[in-house]
């Protein structure tokens, strides 16, 4: 049997809100080490990789590895019924065709349970090598959200270039052009307000803004976002979810003809 209890149920709500428009369905792969998900969008341009550690939960038990096929819009409908302060418990019997979600209010005076029908999903996993990136940039997630939102109103694609001067986001469209440059800045006292650029070599890549903007739906999950760039490789946009784990978005670059 599988059982996972999380006191901060709001994290699960935010997580599903961040994913549900990008990927319609995917397998929650549960094992004794935690819960993982790898899912691509329908056009195979971007990929979501979620890893939640077993020790990040208040309680975690998984007797047998299982792939639970989730329809994210449906899971979202159920999670909307959970209060922001609720503790959420996920439960499933071995080889079950449903996932039970139990919501408990913080003062334990309201308990509800919902069963989500599980799907059988042929998952296509991609092997993503661990590797060194040419540039790794940590910045406030709200800053990333603002930049991609602003640029989406100007153009369709963004050229992201990392140099020793900083990281520059450039776009152009019918109304004109836009450039936003962030410099390495460790002046703010709070680490989550700093911009840290770790540059091994200059790199410049072009991406579709629509997806980068969609990744910013994960902003409520973390104060900091990390962007990793290497020539001719997908960008990684990564949000650490406290001690629980991380969600990473991969987006394939635009390629010159």
């Amino acid at each position: 049997m599988f059982e996972a209890r999380i006191t901060q149920g709001a994290v699960l709500k935010k997580l599903v809100e961040a994913l549900k428009e990008l990927v319609t369905e995917g397998n929650f792969d549960v094992s004794s080490t935690g819960l993982q998900l790898q899912a691509m969008d329908s056009s195979h341009v971007c990929l979501v990789s979620l890893a939640l550690r077993e020790d990040g939960f208040e309680h975690f038990r998984c007797d047998r590895n299982m792939a639970m096929g989730i329809h994210f819009q449906n899971l979202s409908k159920i999670l909307k019924c959970a209060g922001n302060e609720d503790t959420i418990t996920l439960k499933a019997e071995d080889n079950a065709d449903q996932l039970t979600l139990m919501f408990e209010s913080s003062n334990q005076d309201r308990i509800s349970d919902f069963d989500l029908k599980l799907m059988s999903i042929e998952s296509e996993h991609l092997g993503i090598p661990d590797q060194e990136y040419s540039a790794e940039i940590k910045m406030p997630s709200s800053e990333y959200q603002r930049i991609v939102r602003d640029l989406t109103s100007i153009g369709d694609t963004v050229l992201i270039s990392a140099t020793k001067e900083g990281i520059k986001f450039s776009t152009s469209g019918d109304v004109g052009t836009a450039n936003v440059t962030l410099r390495h800045n460790t002046t703010p006292e709070k680490p989550e307000e700093q911009t840290i650029i770790d540059l091994k070599e200059p790199v410049a890549l072009t991406f579709a803004l629509r997806y980068l903007n969609n990744f910013a739906k994960a902003t409520p999950l973390a104060p900091v976002v990390k962007l990793s760039l290497t020539k001719d490789l997908p960008i990684v946009v990564e949000y650490q979810i406290g001690e629980l784990g991380a969600v990473k978005f991969y987006l394939a670059p635009k390629i010159d003809d």
Binding site: L47, L126, G127, L233, K254, I255
Partner: peptide, 14 residues
């Protein structure tokens, strides 16, 4: 003009 790459061009299918 740049074309949108697909993930399979960068990562191997398992």
């Amino acid at each position: 003009k740049a074309n949108q790459g697909r993930l399979e061009s960068f990562f191997t299918a398992l």
